[in-house]
Design a protein around this nucleic acid. Structure first.
Lengths: 230, 230
DNA sequence: ACGCCGGATTCATCGGATGTATGCTCGCGC
DNA sequence: GCGCGAGCATACATCCGATGAATCCGGCGT
């Protein structure tokens, strides 16, 4: 398996070397294939692979372009990979989240605009009394997403979002619901918001740690005693 | 662009749904193409894409297999994307490292076996008096890698390793050399090692923070005043 | 000036032909 | 009986040529 991989590497080099920049258009498939010395079919495999990781975008009838190469976007492609994980490997993700999330909360406690913090409270209050799983997940993602955004680091932002993909979150909330641990978890959200409102980084960090650790404990427990199917 | 993407999604689902597990072999290209209702060419594009992100491996003459799906390995594929970044986006990576690396150091201060900590000192001493860039990079990667490994979280480990890929590190050390900041940076490595030896998590965390922040400052400075080419 | 239409361009998908690496079986020789 | 190598079947690797579909752009009519 050399030709196609060489093509992937060649295209990568063209970009890294600066020959191709974000937004630039690649030569047509036929020409590029000719230039790289392979068939169009093989080249297309290379392009497809680079497309999956969001390095290239292809527009039928138009051409193939280099994406913005935005760090956050590239990390975003990673969400795809995360979906492949289940059960025990999720614990590893949570452990990383336990590091990142508190740090993000601490930064947000200092950097987040006051009105955004207020909006956070509104967001939490918007949740109905007896929310559906889907609502819980959406609210959860939005809450943590806004805090991450407040750090001003898009990469950290999408890394956090990716780290616990929609799939993982859904499974987790489903489990929490059955364990009647929902209210406690939502309380933690509120506590984090209050810490932000108090401009108290250490409180924010601690509550975030408590929050993630709680999930971690719950998951560990659920894994050793798997009552319900995955 | 539907057929190929559908195939990617279909294969992904087969794995997520458990129909295909790690190590399992996929149907032959012709059969699978037939089953998914597309041509072999298109299917191959899908397989190639999934191969790039290490979800599948293909062995000519044998067949196509699902990888171990190890979290660390999948993150590893991410090193590929990191290589696409330059200059300013590297700052975002460093900021994330500034969060993760100190946390890892703190954990290592508690969890790392004493003999491994000693080995760390040996590693640092192995560096010759006037080391080449390549030696500095290798030593740097090894040092931080071992600390990350001590956390016992393979994901965190490869995430850290990937976050500042070989390319980035090389560029950075090249710059540090010109700024005669090498010795200071190496001293920080030694300080981190001493903190680990003292089983002092907070000292380890602090030194690690200092270490990364130093790199960050240097990079920020280098970016605003680009003396030498990238 | 505006909008419609058709040709040119470019990717999307297909089917089949040929090359090449791998694994397995069979039979030879010890 | 056992090791070993030739040969065959299998499955991926690569290429080619043809046709369909989406987009872009320029010309034409009103």
């Amino acid at each position: 398996m050399a030709v196609t991989d060489d093509a992937i590497e060649a295209i990568k080099q063209m970009i890294v070397a600066g020959e191709l920049g974000p937004g630039d258009r690649l030569p047509r498939e036929a020409d590029l294939a000719d230039r790289l010395g392979l068939s169009r079919s093989s080249l297309r495999e290379a392009v497809k692979a680079l497309t999956l990781i969001r390095v290239l975008t292809v527009r039928q009838g138009d051409g193939t372009y280099v994406t913005s190469l935005d760090p956050a976007m590239l990390m975003d492609a990673l969400g795809f990979v995360v979906d492949f994980h289940r059960d025990d490997s999720v614990l590893q993700f949570l452990q990383v989240r336990r590091i990142l999330e508190p740090a993000a909360a601490a930064i947000a406690a200092i950097a987040m605009p006051r009105e955004d913090i207020s909006a956070l409270a509104v967001l939490l209050d918007e949740l109905p009394a007896d929310p559906a799983i889907e609502e819980l997940v959406a609210n959860d993602i939005e809450f943590h997403g806004r805090i991450a955004a407040a750090t001003g680091n898009p990469l950290l932002c999408s890394l956090l979002e990716t780290l616990s993909g929609r799939t993982q979150r859904a499974r987790m909330w489903r489990g929490l619901t059955q364990d009647t641990a929902v209210e406690r978890t939502l309380d933690e959200h509120r506590a984090i918001q209050r810490a932000l409102a108090s401009r108290d980084p250490e409180a924010a960090r601690s509550w975030a740690t408590v929050h993630i650790t709680g999930l971690e404990d719950w998951l560990r427990h659920a894994l050793t005693k798997p009552d319900e199917p995955a």
